[in-house]
Amino acid sequence: MAACDLYFVFLIFAAHKLTNAVKLNQPRVLLPIFNDKPVNLTLEVDERNCYKWTSSRQDLISVQPVYHVFSECAYEAVVTVRTRERRRNTAIVFAEEVQTGAMLRCDVIVDKISSLNVRTATRQLYLEEAPSTLRATSSSPSRESSSTGTSRSMTARSRPQCGSSPSRKAPTTLCPPPSRSSKPLASRAT
């Protein structure tokens, strides 16, 4: 009976360790290939220990550790697409914890992007307000997709008349914040 209880306690301990396992912020990512612009992605380990960062394919991507405050330890790294060959390739970024040797990995797929879909729950956007949270999903010609939720500032290229009623197909209009007594200037039904 004591052995059974000990086994049960060990099982609970192991399950607790698995649920609290160290992770990268992106386990798998699709990055676009551009001829004229470098594409960067910051990978981050959720535990701020010392990690050694490497790539399985230095010809496709480079991995540059981000050192914080005179430290020789990096829990973040910037991944940059190096290849300009517009065909699908894969690489793996490894983050090895220096003291324990525990290995984390992120599968990086580089390919030309065939479509990009951006979604937000925000129906009204105002200039000089906090940025909106967006969900961006990109996909390659082989239907590989990558999704990320991120907070970004928005910029309007052309500005419709504020206060006008946009059509259902028109994009969300960015207008200055309303005065306290006025209603939202522009909105879009999604």
Results as ranks from 00 to 15, higher is better:
Ser71Leu: 10
Glu85Pro: 00
Val69Arg: 15
Lys37Met: 07
Ala91Ser: 15
Ala95Pro: 00
Leu24Ala: 06
Leu41Phe: 09
Asn35Arg: 15
Val78Thr: 14
Gln26Asp: 11
Asn49Gly: 14
Val39Met: 10
Val81Leu: 06
Val22Arg: 13
His68Tyr: 06
Ala21Gln: 12
Ile33Met: 06
Gln99Ile: 11
Val79Leu: 01
Cys73Glu: 07
Thr90Ala: 12
Ala95Trp: 04
Glu96Ala: 07
Lys23Thr: 05
Asn35Met: 14
Ala77Met: 07
Val29Pro: 01
Glu44Lys: 12
Val63Asn: 12
Arg87Met: 10
Tyr75Met: 07
Arg82Leu: 08
Ala74His: 04
Cys50Gly: 02
Cys50Lys: 08
Asn49Trp: 13
Leu43Arg: 09
Arg28Leu: 03
Leu24Glu: 02
Val22Thr: 15
Phe34His: 10
Arg88Phe: 04
His68Ser: 10
Arg28Phe: 05
Leu30Ile: 11
Pro27Arg: 08
Asp46Ala: 08
Val98His: 09
Asn35Ile: 12
Cys73Ser: 11
Ile92Tyr: 09
Arg87Phe: 05
Asp59Cys: 04
Glu85Thr: 14
Thr83Ala: 02
Glu97Met: 05
Thr54Glu: 14
Phe34Tyr: 13
Arg48Pro: 03
Ser62Phe: 03
Gln99Phe: 06
Cys73Trp: 05
Arg87Tyr: 10
Lys23Cys: 07
Pro27Asp: 11
Asn35Gly: 15
Val69Gln: 13
Arg88Gln: 08
Asn49Ala: 13
Ser55Lys: 03
Val66Trp: 06
Arg86Tyr: 00
Val79Ala: 01
Glu44Asp: 03
Val78Trp: 04
Val63Gln: 10
Arg57Val: 05
Gln58Ile: 05
Gln99His: 05
Val39Pro: 04
Pro65Tyr: 09
Trp53Phe: 01
Lys37Tyr: 08
Val69His: 15
Arg87Ser: 13
Trp53Thr: 02
Val63Glu: 06
Glu72Ile: 07
Ala91Gln: 03
Glu76Gly: 01
Arg87Gln: 12
Arg48Cys: 01
Asp36Gln: 14
Lys23His: 11
Phe94Met: 04
Asn89Ala: 15
Val66Tyr: 08
Val63Phe: 08
Ser55Gln: 02
Ile33His: 09
Ser56Thr: 14
Lys52Thr: 10
Tyr75Trp: 15
Asp46Arg: 06
Val29Thr: 09
Pro32Thr: 08
Glu97Ala: 13
Asp46His: 05
Arg48Ile: 02
Ser55Glu: 02
Ala95Tyr: 03
Leu41Asp: 05
Arg88His: 07
Cys50Ile: 06
Glu97Arg: 15
Asn35Gln: 15
Val22His: 07
Gln99Ala: 15
Glu47Phe: 07
Ala77Trp: 11
Ile33Leu: 00
Ala77Glu: 04
Arg88Ile: 02
Pro38Ala: 11
Phe94Glu: 12
Val22Phe: 00
Glu97Tyr: 06
Tyr67Trp: 10
